[in-house]
Simulated assay, not measured.
Amino acid sequence: MSTESNKRSVVVGIFVLLGVLIFVAGVFVLGGQQKRFTKSIRIMAVFSDVAGLKAGNNVWFSGVKIGTIKRVKFFGTNQVEVDMDIEQSAQSYIRKDAQATISSDGLIGNKIVQIFGGTPKAGPVEENDRLKTQEALSSDKVLETLQENNQNLLRVTNDFKALVGNIRRGKGTVGAVLTDSVVANNFKLAMENLQKASLNTVKVTGSVSAFAAKLNTKGSLANELVTDTTVFRRLSRTASRLENAAGSAEKTVSTLNLTSENVNRASEKLNNTNSPLGVLLTDQETATNLRTTLRNLNKGTELLNEDLKAAQSNFLLRGFFKKKAKEESKRKADSTTVVQPQP
């Protein structure tokens, strides 16, 4: 009996020892997960909605677990303050201007607090500091957004369906092009013309390139016109001279126009029967009288010559005419006398 009792005592002791070991290991494991055995500091954050966050949930920073939620309590009128225990080893990496938000551990996992941001200019967080918060996008809002997107997609699908139906019925420009052969042919012709225009554009571009190459060829007139300032000045002076010549030509034309106007006016006066010249050129009776007058003057001149000859024969005037004849002969002799040069 004693042997069996001892065996039972040994077995019970072994089980008790294993239980104690398991209990201690569990305490250490849970304590390690809850950061019970590491030095930590406490910081806070105030949220409008914690979305089911509770004490014991984790705190993450840059994808690394650095602490746990110590307490969740109401703050102010309708806000919630979250106390977090942060490992002291992560304190130097979290800045005072960092922000905290509510997130999920996976797609449908527990709620966590995620700390992000911060600038090197700000110092590290200290005990009882309160971080700024950023409201997280809740699952309800995500579902609302998805529902709205689904409705918009449904509207777009219906509109596209109606558009395809109108095209199949030949409505609109696209439908007419796809269903009406005349419109399709016109569209093909337009495309052919567009292709020809494109080819012409390519040719023009090639011509412009060739002309530009000629401009860049040294020694050519085009290159000198573009690059040589002396040729440009000469052309400028030539252009100025041409402008002056054009101005002179305009003045000459103006003078000729004025002369032509004067000739026209003189012609009008000659054709005017009220002017003396006009009467002489156009009036036949006046011309006849003028001819008669000239004939009478000729006859009077002949008679006067005969009278002068008769007067020369008159003994009273004979001495006068002889004296005049001698003076005339002497004047002619003096004019014909040649002066001899002295030796």
Rank of each mutant, 00 (worst) to 15 (best):
N6R: 13
K7A: 06
V10Q: 15
V11C: 07
L18T: 14
G26F: 12
F28E: 15
V29F: 14
Q33F: 15
Q33E: 12
Q34Y: 15
K39D: 13
F47G: 00
S48R: 08
S48Q: 09
A55M: 04
N58A: 10
T68W: 01
I69K: 00
R71N: 14
R71G: 01
F75V: 04
Q79W: 02
M84T: 00
M84L: 11
I86S: 00
G106A: 05
K121V: 11
G123N: 09
V125A: 00
E127K: 07
D140T: 11
L146F: 06
L153A: 15
V156D: 13
A162E: 15
G170A: 04
K171T: 04
K171H: 07
L178Y: 01
D180K: 03
D180W: 01
S181Y: 06
V182E: 08
F187R: 06
L194A: 15
V202M: 09
V208Q: 08
V208S: 09
T217V: 02
S220I: 05
L221H: 02
L221W: 07
E224G: 03
L225Q: 06
L225P: 00
E250T: 11
E250P: 01
L258R: 12
T259V: 14
A266Q: 07
S267M: 12
S275F: 13
P276C: 03
V279M: 14
T282F: 01
Q284E: 14
A287S: 14
G300T: 11
D307C: 07
A311D: 05
L317W: 14
K323V: 07
K324Y: 08
S329A: 13
R331F: 07
S335W: 06
P343F: 07
